[in-house]
């Protein structure tokens, strides 16, 4: 069972970026402008610690979210997708004229029990 998954189209972009930049991570952003969307960086670029929750791994790319934000998101299942667009953040897909974004749905009863009845690390 997974909290997060990725579409085939987004995976193809992910592979192009891995080829070019090496080991990557996703970090879900909050706030204005280009926020509320996932950003992708070289692994060493972002300082991660216990305030970041690992939601899952998509084709060897870890997906993190700040713990405070996760508290408001943990009842939902996420799918990373890609669309044409032009973000203004430092996310690595932007020069391709593309932006990752998120589809969400509620966790099923079974998923809810599996993920949220125990402490997430």
């Amino acid at each position: 069972m997974e909290r997060i998954t990725i579409t085939k189209k987004a995976t193809e972009v992910l592979e192009i970026l891995k080829e070019k930049h090496g080991t990557l991570i996703f970090h879900q952003s909050g706030g204005c402008c280009d926020g509320s969307a996932p950003m992708i960086f070289e692994k060493e670029d972002m300082y991660l610690d216990e305030s970041d929750v690992l939601l899952g791994t998509l084709n060897d790319v870890n997906f993190y979210m700040n713990r405070d934000q996760f508290e408001y998101w943990k009842h939902t299942h996420l799918t990373v997708d890609i669309t044409e667009g032009r973000g203004a953040s430092f996310s690595l897909e932007i020069p391709l004229g593309l932006r990752f974004f998120i589809h969400s749905r509620l966790l099923s009863a079974e998923e809810e029990t599996f993920f949220n009845s125990k402490q997430m690390h």
Partner: peptide, 13 residues
């Protein structure tokens, strides 16, 4: 900077 939280964290780093 004006923008969102993740880029904000990176810029502070």
């Amino acid at each position: 900077f004006t923008g969102e939280t993740t880029t904000g964290q990176l810029i502070m780093q």
